[in-house]
Amino acid sequence: MDSGNEETTQEELFEHYKFVAAKGQEPLRVDKFLMNFIENATRNKIQQAAKQGQIWVNGATVKQNYKVKSGDEVKVMFEHPPYEFLLTAEDIPLDVVYEDGFLLVVNKPAGMVVHPGHGNYSGTLINALVHHFENLPKNSNDRPGLVHRIDKDTSGLLVIAKTETAMTHLANQFFEKTSEREYVALVWGNVEENEGTIEGNIGRNPKNRLQMMVFPDDGQGKEAVTHYKVIERFGYVTLVSCKLETGRTHQIRVHMKHIGHTLFNDERYGGDKILKGTTFTKYKQFVENAFKILPRQALHAKTLGFQHPETGKFLRFDSEMPKDMTACREKWRNYAKHNS
């Protein structure tokens, strides 16, 4: 085997990350710094990488207690199983809403990761799809059948391509913004306007790479547009419908936070704190109980519409809110009724 091939083989055994510490970064241990930037990376895994000499700052290997400063370039490599392992077929049941020879629509439960990646090598939607369907076409990232995705703790509808033609056709619809996607979200605060549009470019937060943010300057991030409409008001929280014109990572979560209405129990964006309401102990207990009923961000991909790649007919699918969101909504509805 020549050295070039050997290097490629070695490369496939690692996941690489590179970050530049933002201007104004306070000195912070490199292990803590990386935990803010890499999803599902445990401190133990980061410290193992440091012991193996796989963390570099400005080109030099560092120990786990190195203090990262403004402008430092931090690189880390984590070992992971070969890519073939990541596509292991697993007999995981799928909630199939619709299927024909060209595509299928599935209702993904909250808690299921869409595709394998660091910290989530099994139990994903892709592992299930590979088990249930043979020869699914791969997208530009080599992910079988995947046209679009939703976050791990978001529930709801996804369309999966079964042929190359369907993959291309469906992917183009998402790119050209001709697909329809409507979500239901429970957000903190009383959304004053009955409906509105949020526009603001979205990109990675330079201070916390696990978060996205709205940039004030149009030259940064990618264009993002969300249309929202109030469904029901509960005083301290509001149930809203959100229609996506674009499909950016965490778009609804970021846009709603941007206008002051963080999603209920959205841990990554601070929605797992009591953001609105009273200081009464009873109220705090009520909210804590609501968090237990809905132990994730209150977001469900309810409606999905697109043109069928073969027949040209426009298909629209609708799904019920899952039990955890329904139970949480009922709890707030009762609270509002007795405390208005």
Rank of each mutant, 00 (worst) to 15 (best):
I55W: 06
Y121R: 09
L136K: 09
K67L: 15
F291G: 00
Y83W: 04
A49Y: 08
E232A: 13
N334C: 05
G277L: 07
G200N: 09
H255I: 10
H16S: 15
F234S: 09
G305M: 05
F314H: 12
V113Q: 10
Q297E: 12
F102L: 08
N139L: 08
H261Q: 03
V237H: 11
G111E: 04
R248K: 02
T88P: 02
G71A: 01
R248Y: 01
L86Q: 12
N141H: 09
Y183T: 02
V187G: 02
F215E: 09
E182V: 14
S122P: 01
T42L: 04
E7F: 10
H169I: 01
K162F: 03
Y228I: 11
H169V: 07
Q220L: 15
C328E: 11
S70Y: 02
K243I: 08
K138P: 00
K337N: 10
N107F: 05
Y83L: 13
N190T: 09
V147P: 05
R181I: 02
L136G: 08
M167D: 08
G53V: 03
K243G: 03
L170Y: 01
I231A: 07
I38K: 01
N339Q: 10
E99T: 05
Q285C: 02
E7H: 11
K75I: 01
G119F: 04
H132S: 10
K207Q: 12
F317V: 02
K323E: 15
S179W: 04
E26W: 00
H255G: 11
T311R: 03
H115N: 05
G101M: 06
G270M: 01
D142H: 14
H16K: 15
N5W: 11
P81C: 11
A171T: 15
N141F: 10
K331W: 10
M212E: 11
L28Q: 14
Q10R: 15
K32F: 05
Q220R: 14
E195V: 00
G312W: 01
A41H: 03
R316N: 14
I46T: 08
K302M: 13
N141C: 00
N65P: 00
L186P: 05
A50F: 06
T281R: 13
G117D: 08
L129I: 13
Q251N: 10
L104A: 07
I46Q: 07
G305P: 04
G260H: 03
N40C: 07
Q10T: 11
G312D: 03
E199F: 00
A22T: 06
K18L: 12
R316P: 01
V225R: 15
E180S: 09
S340D: 13
F175S: 14
A224W: 13
T165F: 03
G24N: 13
